[in-house]
Write a protein that binds this DNA or RNA. Structure first.
Lengths: 210, 210
DNA sequence: TGTACAGCTACACAATGATGTAGTTTCAAA
DNA sequence: TTTGAAACTACATCATTGTGTAGCTGTACA
């Protein structure tokens, strides 16, 4: 199996030595090594790589922007991030934009080599610490309600409001009088620092007070 | 380094042979091997394991339910799923409930052994195909707007509505008359099949028509 | 040249929502 | 027993929203 790859990495020493190492492996064929992202799209057109190794911090357009462009035009090309950044923002942006791998630069060349092959075989290699952080992105912030201190009734009312019910319907659903609904909603607005149903709904969904 | 683990797995042959294999490794110490999830919590209390290997399909309470209970009471215990299931629902449920690893049963014992250690070192080992699917969960459904066909102006108005602006403020912001705002909102409601601002806002956020 | 259509403006009116004030009940702590 | 807070009911009033109807552009297309 031959795997064609391109690398974008502005550190010349790191890039060259990595490519040198990967050249040892007859299955890995480098068809482009760039110090920035300017020519990636052209290179992809001309050499049709399987994988792009992408640094993030580079002069000019950064790696995540470039990733977006690549996935826009060539969704089948797999992009694996190879960077020093391990903060939530970069990780999140990268995987939302379609990266199918995320390694750190302290990875051994052997691991990088193995990972490139894994990507084309349908995997998604990630540095352990990255994998852990990605999973943590799924852990629900556990009803951020804590900070707003909505009572049980207020939560119920808010939920129905989010579901699009009118005051009248909420009252019917909860077997209370419409004035009580008003009362609760006043409280909710006060606690959420909003002044209308749309605002409250938006806040409720975004901070998930469901 | 000693790693204490518990395994829940109803296939006796598989469980026993895996434990036998892992026993070879002096660093791995099994302090519980169960065919169901009944006694896990007790076992965790008495032996304080670092890791729990958890099957999903088991008689009685299934592995994901048990996972939830474990993380509820012992958030620091790491749970790694070890199952044949690789469907989105199970994966999603498991990682949302706090699993920090997800292997498939066709994994080699060596990989399982390595993964147990990786978990306690802050990693999140996943089978390649699982990792890929998890990353795909992040890929945005790309402005589902397609199906609603909102015009540019309608999107603008909707956005401001979501931001909690009143008709008057929206009109001011877009330099149009309030009646035009009404007009757009009528259209939006029609296209979104809703009849009030809260409903529209909820739908806009959930289907992200931002 | 006309006509179809999307986008905008306008007006009207009933329904609903936002907000203030005030009184009642309940329950638990002082 | 009193006090106080939380939850609820009630009423009033003005602002805003939801909806129907209608007329005016400009542009694209037959």
């Amino acid at each position: 199996m031959k795997v064609y790859y391109i690398i974008c990495e502005d550190n010349n020493d790191y890039r060259d030595s990595l490519v040198d190492f990967l050249d040892e492996d007859a299955e890995l064929i480098c068809c482009g090594a760039f110090a920035n992202t300017d020519k990636v799209l052209d290179a992809i057109i001309s050499c049709e790589p399987d994988v792009v190794l992408m640094d993030i911090d580079m002069p000019g357009k950064n790696g995540i922007e470039s990733l977006k462009e690549i996935k826009e035009s060539f969704p089948k090309v797999q992009v694996m991030m190879l960077t020093v950044f391990e903060d939530r923002e970069n990780i999140f942006e990268a995987i939302c934009s379609g990266a199918t791998g995320y390694l750190l630069k302290n990875s051994s060349p052997e691991l990088i080599s193995k990972s490139i092959k894994e990507v084309v075989q349908g995997g998604a290699p990630m540095a352990p610490v990255i994998a852990r952080k990605i999973l943590q992105l799924f852990q629900k912030p556990e009803k951020s309600n804590a900070s707003f201190q909505l009572t049980l009734h207020e939560q119920q009312v808010l939920k129905l409001l989010v579901d699009g019910l009118s005051y009248k319907m909420i009252a019917a659903k909860l077997n209370i009088v419409i004035d009580t609904v008003r009362f609760h909603i006043k409280r909710i607005y006060y606690k959420l620092h909003v002044h209308s149903a749309p605002e409250a709904v938006a806040k409720a969904i975004r901070e998930n007070l469901l």
